[in-house]
């Protein structure tokens, strides 16, 4: 046991090579109690490879992982007792019922007897499968299977919960239920490692986000910190009834306007500090003789950050 400085997970300099492919290189991050850390990146970025090394399912080619003060290797069982792992691909026995699946993994987490029974009943409520508990899981919908998949990782009340793209292929309702339970668990003090390629989920759930691409963490921080990398440049879209050309010229003269481009229905601007500049911009437009029918301000998001860092879109 080494002191954990309130850090539930400390991963440093992780590296994994598959043949010629460096799947993960020099990946480091840490997660504290009650903190949700997101790994945001497109398919093939190295999220699953990273998480597999963190849980000790995959032999590392380099780096260290310490969970709750205990080092993680493929052989260590002490550290694993503190981790709840929810794999990207649903890993349950289809020919067993929800209850049987939970009971089976409960035993593997070292639980048993009436404690386990009580915990299973409790969890079945949490994942909304209480009324289907004794049906075989092969009869479940995709969302129900996902929820059971997650429930298994929560059985033993882990200090660290690791979810690998838990909402892929899930209906909006189940998805929302999943996100809500992650928020609640985090509120209860659980440390969460959450991987996703959905920008919205990372923004909603994560206290800090690591943007991962081609096996490397390109940037890391809170949402605000990441966004500041792009600079506070908001996108402002104006729709005008007429005089588009004149309006565009007038707006370009404003010092905060970085870029102007026209489209069929109006004008797009890139503005540093749109909130402050907006009244002046509208005035300029009116002065050019145009009547503005709609204004939309889009603040920069992680999608924009990703684009800025990698030159490509999160989803292609």
């Amino acid at each position: 046991m080494t002191p954990d400085n309130g850090r539930v997970l400390e991963a440093s300099n992780l590296r994994k090579v598959f043949g010629d492919l460096v799947a993960v290189e020099d990946v480091s991050f840490h997660i504290g109690e009650g903190e949700t850390y997101g790994l945001l990146g497109p398919n093939g970025a190295g999220k699953t490879t990273t998480i597999s090394m963190v849980i000790g399912l995959l032999e590392r080619d380099g780096g260290e992982v310490v969970v709750a003060g205990n080092p993680v290797t493929t052989k260590s069982t002490t550290a694993k007792a503190a981790i709840g792992y929810v794999p990207q691909d649903i890993a349950i026995y289809p020919d067993l019922t929800a209850r049987e699946n939970l009971s089976f993994f409960g035993h593997l987490y070292g639980m048993g007897g009436s404690d386990l029974k009580r915990r299973i009943d409790e969890l079945l409520e949490v994942i909304g499968l209480a009324d289907r508990a004794d049906d075989r899981s092969e009869e479940f919908s995709g969302g129900m299977k996902r929820r059971l998949n997650i429930g298994i990782g929560l059985l033993h009340g882990p200090r660290l919960l690791m979810l690998d793209e838990p909402t892929v292929g899930v209906d909006p309702q189940s998805r929302n239920a999943i996100l809500e339970s992650v928020e609640r668990l985090s509120g209860e003090g659980m440390a969460v490692l959450y991987t996703t390629h959905y920008m919205e989920e990372a923004e909603r759930l994560c206290d800090r986000v690591g943007i991962i691409d081609e096996g490397q963490i390109k940037a890391e921080g809170t949402r605000a910190e990441l966004v500041s990398l792009v600079g506070q440049r908001d996108k402002v879209s104006l729709v005008t009834a007429d005089h588009a050309q004149e309006v565009a010229e007038a707006l370009a003269s404003h010092p905060d306007v970085v870029e102007v481009s026209g489209n069929e229905s109006g004008i797009d601007l890139l503005v540093s500090g749109a909130a402050a500049a907006l009244p002046a911009l509208l005035q300029l437009a009116a002065g050019a003789g145009a009547s503005v029918t709609s204004v939309e301000v889009v603040e920069p998001n992680l999608e924009a950050v990703f684009l800025h860092l990698t030159g490509k879109a999160l989803r292609d």
Partner: peptide, 18 residues
């Protein structure tokens, strides 16, 4: 099947030795 379903790997993610 246990291997293909990912259950085998998942078992390894629990505090259970191989």
């Amino acid at each position: 099947q246990t291997r293909k379903l990912g259950v085998a790997r998942r078992m390894l993610s629990t505090p259970t030795s191989s």
